[in-house]
Design a protein around this nucleic acid. Structure first.
Lengths: 168, 168
DNA sequence: AATAATCGTTATGAAGTATATCAAATAGAC
DNA sequence: GTCTATTTGATATACTTCATAACGATTATT
């Protein structure tokens, strides 16, 4: 039920991760820098951290944003379908939806055809919030990524990530 | 104290993440596929999952492996230095070291020059395990990644991840 | 000598993620 | 048409990861 969200998400006040301690005496990273999983995780944390910062005005987490995005493109689906598509387990999806529903961003409606399931739909407020959220992501978050990587690499990266998530 | 490690790490038995439910009726991912953070996290989970699978014979997690790797290249450092370099908070580093020390892979030694700090060093068994671990990572894990991505993309990906982790 | 800072550690809490189980509703077997 | 099995959303629960506060021992600073 807590709405607060720590924006730190990372032990920032410490040493710049990457191998320099406070005496300026570098540790040898060695083969660590060639370990994809290592840099992948670090990059992922940074990206999520930046996402939260950019999305601070709307107080949406990456998971919440992805739910709104998916619901907008797929109205009328039930909880299991949305949760499965996002790789979220149904039990954990309940409280996620509770939070969004309590903010009046979406509605749960008993399906008339199958009264076990809940039909999920964005509210007007949900659609408006999503529109604003997409603008924030595009102009702040993705823009910064493209700035760092360059447009070509950014696009290539998207393709590679999708490939790993799909074929690996 | 539990040594067991769930290898699932992902709700595998469910729908193939990516947008197909059990009726074969695809959900529209829409802009979700263009959201780097989304695919980045999914890819990261897959890579860690594969790492655990490849490393199963040695029962080393990615974090544990990175500690051994860093200690090998930087013997004689204390806990704070190693933890900071890896982006691990000191309190959380304690139990990580406990596990490795109880397996006789490394030793904590009170520093003679500063009796507050612990000098960390790999044991012979630790070095031997690291050698085997590096072989597993190279021949199973990274090899599979290179197979999926191709050597050029794999190398480019490493560079981009490091860049994000560094400059973002 | 008195105070402050650092090191490893403990305790603790917040999230994220996983499983088992339940009541209600539906589907399928006979 | 009844009985059983399955599915849906939900609850309870547990484990892992990540973060902060605080402590004793030691060192540094004043």
């Amino acid at each position: 039920m807590t709405v607060s969200k720590t924006t730190s998400q990372y032990q920032a006040k410490q040493v710049a991760p990457g191998g320099f301690d406070e005496e300026g005496c570098a540790l040898q990273l060695g083969e660590l820098s060639e370990l994809l999983g290592y840099s992948l995780k670090r990059a992922q944390l940074k990206v999520f951290e930046d996402f939260l910062r950019c999305m601070a005005p709307l107080q949406l987490t990456p998971a919440q944003f992805s739910v709104l995005l998916l619901l907008d493109k797929n109205p009328g689906r039930n909880q299991t379908e949305i949760a499965n598509t996002l790789g979220i387990l149904r039990p954990n999806f309940v409280s996620l939806l509770d939070a969004l529903e309590s903010r009046d961003l979406l509605t749960r409606m008993r399906s008339p055809s199958d009264r076990r399931s809940h039909v999920l739909m964005l509210t007007d407020k949900g659609r408006a919030t999503l529109t604003r959220a997409k603008k924030l992501v595009a102009t702040r978050h993705e823009a910064r990524l493209i700035e760092v990587l360059g447009p070509a690499d950014h696009k290539a990266l998207l393709g590679m990530m999708a490939k790993i998530a799909r074929e690996f």
